[in-house]
């Protein structure tokens, strides 16, 4: 009898809830992916413009870099419907086929964008012409605040195998802020200042792993506007490990880049006339403050 109970227990323990299965993903769509998050260090002289283009792939394969006919960033300040300041930067591929676009070094004039223009109230536009389609994204510049301090603590959440980092920063009291934290290792977190407007805010972030002593982790705080905050919030959720058996329906997270090829009025460029025509990714120019911490 004892043996029997033991056998039953073993049998039940071996039926775990989760396992990896083969799924035939037949239906495929290839779309342009624009990774255009530009992180600005305000102390540098130029904005480190770099836009990555690739084509989306089957879920189990890698994205393939793709080249565009042209990639241009335009920036302008508009007051009372009049453009009072403008400039542009033509981008070129770093190496043929790399899909990485930076300000064209071979252009007749300097195509880099100085950080000094960020003092103005600018709207940046990204134009991408790719396989005879024209894509456009518009974004304002979003500032951030520096991280006051990073501290390692020994708290844990569930299994005790986590690493706790305490982040401390002071919110900008002048405006409603949205922040994106980049915790390295593809770990991101978004937050908004609704409940700590203008105050010092401290929170803990838990890595689901233990690090070797002397490991250095880079942690950044990035500015964001509301749409970029929403985008990253959804992106983090959709790319997340596990949303539980009661998750909300999965969806396609679209960014702020639109296919404007067939639109006659680009002032209303939000794709409801052609809801199935869209690229993926996001274009944002945000301030970044980097800090690092050494694990002990």
């Amino acid at each position: 009898m004892k043996k029997c109970v033991y056998l039953l227990l073993v049998l039940m323990l071996h039926t775990a809830c989760e396992d990896v299965i083969e799924v035939d993903l037949s239906d495929q769509e290839t779309r342009l992916v624009v990774d255009g998050l530009i992180r600005v260090d305000i102390d540098e002289f130029f904005i480190p413009v770099e836009v990555k283009l690739s084509l989306s792939s089957n879920f189990f394969d890698e994205n393939i870099p793709t080249s565009a006919e042209s990639v241009i960033i335009r920036y302008e300040e508009i007051e009372n419907n009049v453009v009072i300041f403008m400039g542009s930067s033509t981008l070129a591929e770093t190496a043929p086929g790399s899909g990485i676009y930076v300000p064209d070094p071979n252009f007749s004039s300097d195509q880099r964008i100085p950080t000094s223009v960020l003092d103005r109230n600018l709207i940046f536009s990204l134009f991408v012409r790719h396989q005879n389609r024209l894509y456009l994204a518009r974004t304002p510049y979003a500032s951030a605040v520096p991280i006051n301090s990073l501290r390692q603590d020994d708290g844990s959440l569930f299994n005790g195998d986590e690493t706790e980092i305490v982040v401390n920063f002071t919110d900008d009291p002048e405006q409603n802020n949205y922040y994106l934290f980049d915790f390295d290792f593809g770990e991101y977190l978004v937050t908004e200042d609704e409940f700590f407007q203008g105050q010092v805010f401290e929170f803990s972030f838990f890595y689901d792993q233990r690090f070797d002593p002397e490991t250095t982790i880079d942690i950044s705080i990035l500015g964001a506007d509301q749409t970029f905050y929403n985008y990253m919030d959804l992106l983090i959720e959709q790319s997340g490990d596990f949303q539980g058996p009661f998750q909300t329906p999965v969806t396609t997270v679209r960014g702020n880049i639109f296919d404007i090829t067939d639109l006659d009025n680009i002032n209303v460029f939000d794709n409801v006339d052609q809801p199935d025509v869209f690229p993926l990714g996001y274009f944002a120019i945000v301030q970044e403050y980097k800090s690092s911490i050494t694990i002990n």
Binding site: L25, D27, Q28, E29, T30, R31, V33, D35, L37, S54, S56, S57, N58, F59, N63, D182, G186, Y188, L235, I236, Q238, S239, V250, T252, V253, L280, G281, Y282
Partner: peptide, 13 residues
């Protein structure tokens, strides 16, 4: 029906 990468995140769509 596919996936894309953004800033090191892998996102199915």
């Amino acid at each position: 029906v596919g996936k894309f990468e953004f800033q090191g995140l892998t996102v199915p769509f």
